[in-house]
């Protein structure tokens, strides 16, 4: 019997969308800092920030459980001061997706900022434009394609996030069961029709995202 739930798709889109927005807000300043400033331990920190790309998601999920759980360092603080318990909520799925996909945005963002030639900033500063304005008028317009491509990739990856999400958010239908988890559950229950539809929908969304990302990164007129 087919038991496909659109809730799982909407939850997946919501989680992936939130993680993309958070990653955008975090990676633009961090990527710019790494591209333009020199500081001690920069490359070491870069390695640490890239770790989620190579670590198995279950390992990340375990770290997150240890940190965010009732007895975890962050979990305790959240519960004590804000009365928030993240584990087994959809917000925990957002945290998991954000951390797993962070390097996918951070790396291209850093590269995009590095590829903007400093001579444009110098020219604009001599022309009397403030550094703050230069960022919005010169640097961001020249770097946004790289940043946007990274965000799209991270969106596709977040849609497919499974391991870390399952560990910190569980699989509560209608609450924390994302589409990729729902596929796993459907297969476990022998409901191949539901699994097939979910697989096709997820595949189409991911292919569409990759096509757009490729189109954007291939457009290199400015470099």
């Amino acid at each position: 019997m087919m038991n496909f739930s659109w809730d799982a798709l909407f939850l997946s889109l919501k989680v992936a969308g939130c993680s993309v927005i958070i990653n955008l807000v975090i990676t633009v300043p961090i990527g710019f800092l790494f591209a333009r400033k020199k500081f001690i331990g920069k490359e070491f920190l870069d390695t640490i920030l890239t770790l989620p790309m190579v670590l198995p998601p279950t390992v990340l999920g375990y770290y997150l459980l240890v940190l965010l759980g009732r007895h975890g360092w962050i979990g305790q603080c959240l519960e004590k001061y804000f009365n928030i318990n993240l584990i087994f909520t959809w917000q925990a799925a957002v945290v998991a997706a954000t951390i797993v996909t962070f390097p996918l945005v951070f790396k291209p963002t850093r590269t995009a900022f590095e590829s903007v030639n400093v001579c444009y900033e110098q020219a604009a500063s001599v022309l009397g434009i403030s550094n703050f304005s230069i960022f919005f008028r010169i640097i961001l317009p020249l770097a946004w394609r790289g940043i946007f491509a990274g965000l799209l990739l991270s969106f596709a990856r977040a849609l497919g996030e499974f391991g870390a999400t399952l560990m910190v958010a569980g699989s509560i239908p209608g609450k924390t069961e994302t589409l990729s988890i729902a596929i796993y559950q459907a297969v476990q229950e022998g409901d191949n029709d539901t699994a097939s539809i979910a697989v096709i929908i997820l595949s189409i969304v991911c292919i569409a995202v990759l096509v757009v990302a490729k189109k954007l990164t291939g457009y290199k007129i400015f470099h």
Binding site: Q122, P141, L142, I221
Partner: peptide, 15 residues
């Protein structure tokens, strides 16, 4: 500094 600088590489904004 209220000056204008013509760069050898022009540095025209490509966008």
């Amino acid at each position: 500094r209220n000056l204008a600088y013509f760069f050898q590489s022009y540095s025209l904004f490509p966008h």
